[in-house]
Amino acid sequence: MSRERDPGMSLIVKTITRLTVGLILLFGIYLLLHGHLTPGGGFAGGVIIALSLVHVMLAFGKDKAFEVLSVSGAKALEGIGALLFLAVALLGLAWGAFFLNFVPKGEVFELFSAGTIPVSNIAIACKVGAGLFSIFVALVIMKHEPTEKE
């Protein structure tokens, strides 16, 4: 079982992962989109999205995971999330105050309500998901270096 060359797990784990990883990703997206209606929000949803990527990486190895989201893609997504959140803040400044909720608020308990809050949730989820995934990638690659040397 050469873990360094082909770090995938057994057939059982791969089959179960194929079934579950989509559901995990879907649950993360649900949590972040309904952050202004139910408990959860951008941070938890982003971490669950990162966990689904980590799930793929643990079961199939890092090459397969990088097909879904490469390291440069994760870096770009993290930057986009941070800039989007900052853009929400600065656009509020144009309407009068930092982080002003300038979008029409709609009906309570509807999916499209609460103004800028869903946008901020999506921005934070991008940032947190991509950021934690790239931290995981960095630590796993660091783990492989000493084993190659010996």
């Binding site: 202004h36 408990p39 929000g41 608020k105 309570v108 308990f109 309500s113 809050i117």
Partner: peptide
């Protein structure tokens, strides 16, 4: 008001 049903999010 913010119109968010989840007060924590607001």
């Amino acid at each position: 008001g913010t119109g968010a049903a989840n007060v924590v999010a607001s």
